[in-house]
Computed example of a mutant assay.
Amino acid sequence: MTGLRLNLAPLKEPLGFVKLVEWLTAIFAFGSCGGFSGRNVISLFCGDGRNQTLNATFHYPFRLSQVPLVEGNTTLCNHSVSTTHLVGDSASSAEFFVGVAVLCFLYSMVALLVYLGYMHVYKDSDFGPIFDFAVTAVLAFLWLVCSSAWAKGLQNVKDATGDEGIGSTLGLCRLGDVTCQVTEFANMRTLNISVVFGYLNMFVWAGNAWFVYKETRWHSQRYSGQPGPGRAQVPAPI
């Protein structure tokens, strides 16, 4: 019979419980990154004692080269400044990270549905556990790659929106009579948390691969072929 048989018992076992943890950590990973929006306030201290401010508002997917720092030709500290954008583009790493998180979120839901409703079919076939193990191992590797890429991309965002990044982007800041300083930083705590959840997901998925492997025929054949303790092998008759 291949029909639905609802059984919550797998949630009490590592196979199902860890999959539920993966579902939750994936939500935190893409939620903390994909929903970010922040603003840095840059103060310009002019030589004549006046102060002026600029705003740099950036958000996911962090295409900083499209974020205007100065819109239109304007005058700042008695200097004419043309349209200027931030420098950098971390969209590829951010979108890769969020994409892997969403993929893991969806796969965890499907796997939980199979565990809770079709575990009898899952265990009666070789394809189900082997496919589950292969996908779990691949996703664990993807978490390592995308988390490392996003950690580097996040550092690039911080560098481009910090004092040195703004100073090198805005030519006005390199003049002797103007000092530029970021006086209000966007709260990037959630972005830091997203990197932590990325590596946490890597460890959780790598650990879960072991429990999935135990359901495959490779594991059962390995241990069924070993003699039990205290069991002597009978020599073949001559």
Rank of each mutant, 00 (worst) to 15 (best):
F36G: 08
N55G: 12
A29V: 01
F105K: 03
A137W: 03
F97M: 09
A140W: 02
R174K: 15
I193V: 15
L24P: 00
A160K: 04
L44Y: 06
Q226R: 14
T216C: 04
G99F: 07
T136N: 11
G34A: 12
L191W: 04
G47R: 13
G165E: 06
T57M: 08
V98Q: 08
G153M: 03
Q155P: 03
V121W: 14
W143E: 04
L200E: 05
T161V: 11
P235C: 05
W23V: 00
N156H: 09
P229A: 15
G88E: 13
Y199Q: 07
M119Y: 06
L113K: 00
T75S: 15
G153I: 00
F97A: 03
P229S: 13
F131P: 01
E71R: 12
V87W: 01
V145W: 00
P227Y: 05
Y199W: 14
L76S: 14
L106F: 10
E13I: 00
L116W: 09
G38D: 11
P61W: 02
N55H: 06
W205Q: 02
N55W: 07
W143G: 05
I42G: 06
V100D: 07
S82K: 13
H79G: 07
G35M: 13
Y223S: 07
L44V: 02
F45A: 14
Q226D: 14
G207V: 00
V196R: 02
D159A: 15
K152V: 02
G171W: 05
G207L: 11
F97Y: 10
C77T: 12
D89G: 08
S43E: 15
G16K: 04
L154K: 09
A160V: 03
A160Q: 12
Q155A: 11
L54D: 09
D177C: 03
P14L: 02
F133S: 09
L175D: 12
N51M: 10
K19V: 01
C104Y: 00
A160C: 09
